[in-house]
């Protein structure tokens, strides 16, 4: 983050920050996903207590619900998992799980939502499920605009291997064109 972002509204500030992150990681969101991300960040900006939620419980609870309650619960789980994996990936370490744990639960929640809601909203949730890794990469970049890496090299390696995150690959390469080599049984 090279300069202070001074916009008249919190919406405009989040939007500017997301634009800056997209440019920094060379990813582009379409207008729908960008808007969703802006409003997601606005909704959760003043709710730090959300990090205390247990996603496994909430997800399993959503499976017992019907109709609007189920939709609300699934959306909540998807949104939280996106925030956890994108903004607070170190939370996974404290919970003794991998970041991809939240990625899998979040993607599945959005995918299920796309199956149960009407056609117009189904397209949105389908997109969120498909673009989950891109959204996570943009949130990682947003946190890293301050200059510090969000993930340890090992976490970046795991997340790249498990999700194909381009941001993690960039972190591993350190700006060079080097690719990590996996497989411990290889001899060099």
């Amino acid at each position: 983050m090279s300069q202070l972002i001074l916009e008249p509204t919190s919406q405009a500030q989040w939007q500017t920050l997301i634009h800056e992150a997209q440019a920094a990681c060379d990813r582009n969101l379409d207008e729908t996903l960008e808007s969703y991300l802006v409003f997601l960040l606005m909704r959760f900006a003043d709710r730090p207590e959300c990090t205390a939620r247990i996603m496994a419980e909430d997800y399993l609870q959503s499976q017992q619900l019907q109709g609007a309650h189920r939709e609300e619960c699934l959306r909540d789980v998807g949104d939280h998992c996106l925030l956890f994996s994108g903004l607070f990936p170190r939370l996974a370490e404290r919970r003794l799980v991998r970041v991809s744990y939240f990625v899998n639960i979040g993607r599945s929640s959005y995918r299920q939502l796309s199956d149960v809601v009407g056609r117009q909203r189904a397209a949105l949730y389908g997109q969120l499920s498909e673009a989950f890794i891109v959204l996570m990469d943009i949130l990682h970049t947003m946190r890293e605009l301050g200059g510090q890496s969000l993930l340890t090299p090992i976490q970046a390696m795991e997340l790249w291997q498990e999700t194909g995150s381009r941001r993690c690959l960039q972190q591993l390469g350190g700006g060079r064109n080097a690719l990590p080599v996996s497989g411990s049984d290889e001899t060099h």
Partner: peptide, 13 residues
């Protein structure tokens, strides 16, 4: 895999 990921795999299958 830790819960609920086995449930998710089951759902998908």
């Amino acid at each position: 895999l830790l819960c609920p990921l086995p449930v998710i795999r089951t759902q998908d299958a």
